[in-house]
Amino acid sequence: MPEVIFNGSAGRIEGRYHPSRVKNAPIAIVLHPHPQFGGTMNHQIVYQLYYAFAHRGFSVLRFNFRGVGRSQGSFDHGQGELSDAASALDWAQAINPEARGCWIAGFSFGAWIGMQLLMRRPEIEGFISIAPPANLYDFSFLAPCPSSGLIVHGERDAVVPYKDVATLVEKLKTQKGIVIEQKVIPGANHFFDAKIEPLMQAITSYLDKRLATVTIKPEPRGRRTG
């Protein structure tokens, strides 16, 4: 079932879904970058994230925010997009009622939306936040951050300066009961041009470490359905 359509508050939402072969496998939702700057669910980093989760046995969903691709509605400066993300998680949970957990992952604008969803849905147990735009959007809602996760940033990011992400990470690290890991990709800009491989190595290493105590049968690497 690679192509899916589900309902959101602004109408139909277009997505791609990879079901796990394991009945109670965890869910992962992957969020794309800014819709007004070319962000779609087919962005290379979103695509790579999607398969990183799929290869590790997750039931994983990526989708287009409202107004992108075949998703109905129009850009809503974050509020509507958060609603879209909540609808995506609702849909994934409805068809995976026995899922034993959930992860959220997002890039840039999608990272901001993902962290907001994290605050609203206690079942989200892990996150991956790539180049979170800490200088462009308010992240003060993360008080406290309820789950452990990974924040990845490019060393030469001119869109989101390193100091802003570092300040966010340090703030989150002061909270008890969770572990925030930070990885800086040497030489990488905001879009990780020519640095996708080290970016994904950092992410997959983190996922493998977090999942080491959880038994999920990995998907064969040659099998792709979305």
Rank of each mutant, 00 (worst) to 15 (best):
Ala10Phe: 03
Phe65Ser: 04
Asp157His: 07
Lys173Pro: 05
Gly187Lys: 07
Ser108Trp: 01
Ile104Glu: 00
Phe63Asp: 00
Val214Arg: 10
Lys23His: 09
Ala99His: 08
Ser148Gly: 15
Phe63Cys: 00
Glu14Ala: 13
Arg210His: 05
Gly177Ala: 06
Gly106Met: 01
Asp157Asn: 06
Glu123Cys: 09
Asn7His: 15
Ser9His: 12
Leu168Glu: 02
Gly8Glu: 07
Pro122His: 15
Arg120Phe: 05
Val22Phe: 09
Gln72Val: 06
Arg70His: 08
Ser148Trp: 10
Thr215Tyr: 09
Gln79Asn: 13
Leu117Cys: 07
Glu98Trp: 15
Leu89Cys: 05
Ala134Val: 11
Gly187Cys: 07
Ile29Cys: 05
Gln175Ile: 13
Gly110Ala: 09
Ala86Gly: 07
Thr204Leu: 02
Gly80Met: 00
Ile178Ala: 12
Val22Pro: 03
Pro19His: 10
Gly69Ile: 11
Phe53Glu: 03
Gln72Pro: 08
Gln116Asn: 15
Pro161Phe: 01
Phe107Ile: 02
His34Tyr: 09
Pro146Glu: 10
Ala52Met: 10
Leu31Val: 00
Glu81Val: 00
Gly177Thr: 04
Arg21Glu: 14
Tyr17Ile: 03
Glu181Met: 08
Asp157Ala: 03
Ile124Glu: 09
Leu82Cys: 02
Glu197Pro: 03
Leu172Met: 12
Ala194Trp: 05
Gln48His: 07
Gly11Cys: 13
Pro144Asn: 14
Cys102Thr: 11
Phe65Ala: 01
Phe75Tyr: 14
Trp112Ala: 03
Asn96Glu: 12
Ile216His: 10
Asp138Glu: 06
Phe58Thr: 05
His190Met: 03
Pro132Ala: 03
Ala25Phe: 05
